[in-house]
Design a protein around this nucleic acid. Structure first.
Lengths: 228, 228
DNA sequence: TTAGCATTCAAACGAACGTTTGATTGCAAT
DNA sequence: ATTGCAATCAAACGTTCGTTTGAATGCTAA
């Protein structure tokens, strides 16, 4: 046993090159719109390399996701741990919960040089086109983070019905997704558009907070007052 | 000239059957994920019928869009006309602008029996995956509506910088898109989830209004005070 | 009855798809 | 030197793709 080669992470770049190329192409053209020949060509590797290293196109897609989503989940959980440690048993403020949840996503989306932005575009896109095999691992990999953050949100807004909070979290994720896909889609609908990307985060957070803390609609108020 | 057959809209159902089948399949699996054979099979027409009636797969996609988007645009413009007529030269209230813009979309999304819901899912999905050939006609068909509604929003919020308004409109469209794709994506991220669909609209509008009227972020306030 | 024409149909086209194969390469350990 | 093995490679596999073709069909107008 000269060297525990064991869990071999050999072939220094080709796996990474494939993942990077695939990430960008999937974000740009979607899963079905991207071919193995495009991926391997852009990564400058042999056509068979993907099947050799990952097994299949779907497995590659999963790995593209797992690589960054795992990182994003860790960041979100760390943020929440830190925040909850600071306040002890007291509930967090809604703004703190939002910062912990969307902060890491926006930071990742702001990283345009290491693929973070590319991945967040892919994530937003995939969310609206959940292919069969994607639903499965998406739900699994998101589960813990969503569970902990929804609970934190419940506690931060004790007077708001839980169903309402879940919906608003959903609305907020939509707003953030569009914010990240951002300028492309914006230019698609309005005319040309250029703006300081650094302003996106303050803009978005004040919008989200406004929506999250908006007065409850009357119909919901009525439903929440009586029984249950 | 016995009958002005002229602009023939013959073949009573096959065009419509193709459009309906294509609309559903495109919404479910995307453009690249849907094959001509799936479409024609689900529509119970011959494989060559699509190319005969529409010319190509892309042209079919365009027609699927045009059919409903045209209707949606008309509704939105009618709403705005009516509202502006009511108030004369005075600016509209933000809530009125939102009602005019998102009301027709939500109504269409609530129609689950005539394909309206299906189309709105497709629209939200396409927004985040703008294929080359889609960008073109999307921008064209959206142009007039977006122009008029952004102006109406400017006037309804005279103290808010225009760039801010454009962004917030963008955020709102994201929230609405997610709201419509709705329960599918929600169940993907949280656990199971069931709720009264009739409550969606009041929930969404109070959220949107809260976001739209939220206080401006400090950075933007600073930028807007000095020159320019 | 017949001519014209829009529509439908079965069949085939070449191209591109994801995947597999079997040989070749180049380094590490014997 | 030689064996072992992970990695790369060119080539081919069988499918499925969007589109085209040319013949059949059925209705309408002359």
């Amino acid at each position: 046993m000269p060297q525990p080669v064991a869990d071999n992470r050999n072939s220094p770049d080709t796996r990474e090159r494939i993942l990077d190329a695939a990430e960008w192409l999937f974000a740009e053209h979607g899963f079905d719109g991207t071919s193995m020949r495009q991926i391997t060509s852009q990564a400058s590797v042999n056509l068979a390399a993907v099947n050799y290293h990952f097994g299949s196109k779907e497995a590659l897609f999963h790995e593209v996701f797992h690589r960054r989503l795992n990182q994003l989940n860790l960041l979100r959980l760390q943020e929440l741990d830190k925040l909850e440690q600071e306040v002890g048993d007291a509930p967090l403020k809604p703004s703190q919960v939002l910062e912990g949840f969307f902060g890491p996503a926006l930071e990742m989306a702001a990283d345009t040089t290491h693929g973070g932005h590319t991945f967040m575009r892919l994530l937003g896109r995939t969310y609206t086109e959940p292919a069969e095999f994607v639903r499965k691992f998406m739900a699994e990999e998101y589960a813990e983070v969503m569970e902990r953050y929804t609970v934190a949100l419940y506690r931060s807004l004790p007077d708001v019905p839980r169903a309402e909070i879940v919906w608003r979290l959903h609305f907020m994720m939509g707003a953030v997704s569009y914010a990240i896909s951002g300028i492309d889609a914006l230019a698609l609908v309005t005319g040309r558009f250029d703006d300081d990307p650094a302003l996106l985060k303050p803009r978005l957070t004040s919008f989200l907070l406004g929506g999250l803390r908006a007065p409850l609609p009357e119909q919901v108020m009525q439903d929440t007052k009586p029984a249950r």
